[in-house]
């Protein structure tokens, strides 16, 4: 079985997010790291390899600047067997449309049985990349997978939705995104961290995946940011200093707004 886990490099989530007013893009020049939601995706692939799909090969796939090599190593330390890294200056400024085109082009070079995403990117909080890539590859797609079981050539999955869970069966090859409730990613072991650099790293250019500069980047994007403004304030807030009656005041506040009866 061949599994691709699509990962993303994001700005350090503990640092404050900033948008460059000139480029209107998220500032990515600080410390960057592996999107934390993707650790769940890698972990789930590793669990498949350890369980129902022994011998499965896990490729870590990403579209990111060449400087993302430490993020690649992190993903490999987490359990990937090899990396496929599309790194090209022309990709800068790509939106979801352009990035999904690039990712799909990378993924189409190989015959993956299963393509796994994390539920979202912690930078732009985008949830739809899995669906977009699945659409381009013409594969079935299930998002927010909270549990899965491999059954021959299909997956039985439990999908988290607002009203509860859906239980679905999806035939392979397929694309899924896993929720962050699906597992608790393990800490990579010290030998795995040290060994990550020795695993096969494939670095590709746009030409390698059959794309032209105009397919991606700003030119290949369908979204253009025309202006940015701060969100409106949420109105008056009430701050209580606890003098022993705060709980009663909070209760009264909630009753007044009919939040509790």
């Amino acid at each position: 079985m061949k599994i691709a886990v699509c990962v993303k490099e994001v700005p350090d989530p503990t640092a404050e997010k900033r948008i460059d007013p000139d480029t209107k893009r998220l500032v990515r020049s600080g410390e960057n790291t592996l999107n934390r939601y993707d650790r769940h995706a890698i972990e789930e692939a590793v669990r498949l390899r350890e369980g129902a799909a022994p011998g499965a090969e896990i490729a870590v796939v990403l579209v990111a600047p060449a400087s993302a090599s430490r993020t690649v190593d992190k993903a490999l330390a987490q359990g990937g067997d090899r990396s496929v890294h599309l790194a090209d200056d022309g990709l800068s400024g790509s939106d979801i449309v352009a990035t999904s085109r690039a990712l799909a082009a990378v993924l189409a070079r190989d015959s993956y049985d299963l393509i796994v995403f994390g539920q979202q990117g912690s930078d732009a909080e985008c949830y739809v990349m899995a669906s977009a890539v699945a659409e381009r590859l013409a594969r079935p797609c299930v998002t927010q997978v909270a549990a899965l079981a491999l059954d021959g050539s299909s997956l039985k999955v439990k999908r988290q939705v607002e009203t509860g869970y859906e239980t679905l069966e999806v035939s392979l090859p397929a694309v899924i995104s896993v929720s962050d409730a699906i597992n608790e990613p393990r800490y990579p072991s010290l030998p795995a961290i040290m060994g990550a650099k020795r695993k096969p790293h494939e670095v590709l250019s746009l030409a390698d995946v059959g794309l032209a500069a105009g397919d991606v980047g700003v030119d290949g994007s369908r979204t253009h940011v025309s202006a940015l403004s701060k969100p409106p304030t949420r109105g008056d807030s009430v701050k209580l200093e606890d003098d022993g009656t705060a709980a009663e005041k909070i209760l009264a506040f909630l009753v007044e707004r009919k939040v509790v009866a």
Binding site: K74, A77, L190
Partner: peptide, 18 residues
């Protein structure tokens, strides 16, 4: 030879997270 600055920092980043 494998204890490059980058490798050591990768190790320490995980140690710090733990």
């Amino acid at each position: 030879a494998e204890s490059t600055l980058d490798a050591v920092l990768d190790v320490l980043a995980e140690a710090g997270t733990f």
